[in-house]
Computed example of a mutant assay.
Amino acid sequence: MTLFRPCIDLHEGKVKQIVGGTLNDQGAKTNFVSEKNSDYFADLYKSYNLTGGHVIGLGPGNETAAKLALATWRGKLQYGGGINPDNAKDYLDAGAEKVIVTSYIFDNKELSLEKLKNLHKIVGSEQLVLDLSCRKVESGWAIATNRWQTVTSTLVNQDTLEDLSQWCSEFLIHAADVEGLQQGIDSELVQFLGKHCPIPVTYAGGASSMKDLEMVDELSNGKVDLTIGSALDIFGGSGVKFKDCVEWNQQKQ
């Protein structure tokens, strides 16, 4: 059954919603900047027992805000953003249920099995989420690293999902080309993930209404969870009410 997964996206220490494909060293196109700190949203999710959400640090300057959120809903939120063998355990000790990793396991656009093994030795499969966020390419979708600016040679296909599933407990996949645009999900990608993903997976990107949550449930046969960001009213959006997402989960669980 498809569930709504909450998120806390951090940029320059503030809770923001951005257009994913615009993020670079100069900044990003921003949909929303919250006046509230990260712990407000973590406490909100805690009050409704929303688990499995992700806190994402987009670039530097987010460590304090991230750890504040993780401590507030301890053991129930995942953290991603610059995770490597040197800091992974630090974020787990700070309260992360799991750590989310992308860029570290790539070298020059190539997946490094050696790096993945090194990280796996430290955190193990159960506390590791692999972020396979991707961009559309001619042959399907390719994993994108470096804040979704670097398109790697690794395709999001059946072989990749099967090979990488042995190293982690779940996948997080942002469709970077539609992330933050609120113009609808990548239905083809969702359907593909529902058919071929051997472990739990959360999709993010483009959701603009409760119909998208229903669509993900239908397209994936309930096997893919959905994160909704910019469209949510708690993030300044008008397409989706947070309370409706809470009710959806309560009905599904």
Rank of each mutant, 00 (worst) to 15 (best):
F32E: 03
K109W: 06
S133W: 03
L50D: 09
Q127H: 15
G20R: 12
E97F: 15
S47M: 10
K36S: 15
D39T: 10
V55H: 11
R74N: 11
Q78G: 10
K76H: 11
L68R: 11
V123H: 00
G20H: 10
V55N: 13
V99T: 07
D93T: 08
T22Y: 06
N118C: 02
I8E: 07
V99K: 09
Q127M: 08
L77I: 05
G59H: 06
Q26N: 06
E114A: 08
L113C: 04
G27A: 04
K76A: 05
A71N: 12
G81N: 08
G57A: 12
K89C: 08
L10N: 14
S125H: 11
R74L: 02
N118V: 15
D43Y: 15
Q17C: 12
F32Q: 08
A69I: 04
E110T: 02
S103K: 12
V101T: 09
K16A: 15
L68Q: 14
L92H: 03
G81E: 12
S112Y: 01
K136R: 15
S125G: 05
L113T: 07
S34L: 10
A71H: 08
G13A: 05
L92Y: 09
L50R: 08
P85S: 08
S133H: 03
P60Y: 04
R135Q: 02
A28I: 00
Q127D: 00
I56D: 06
K67S: 05
V101H: 01
K98L: 01
K115W: 02
G82A: 11
Y91M: 14
R74I: 01
D107T: 04
S125P: 05
N84T: 15
G53I: 06
S38N: 07
D93K: 15
G20W: 09
F106V: 10
I122W: 00
Q78F: 01
G59Q: 07
I122S: 00
I56Y: 04
P85G: 10
Y91S: 05
K136D: 00
K136G: 01
I56M: 13
A28E: 05
K14S: 07
E114D: 14
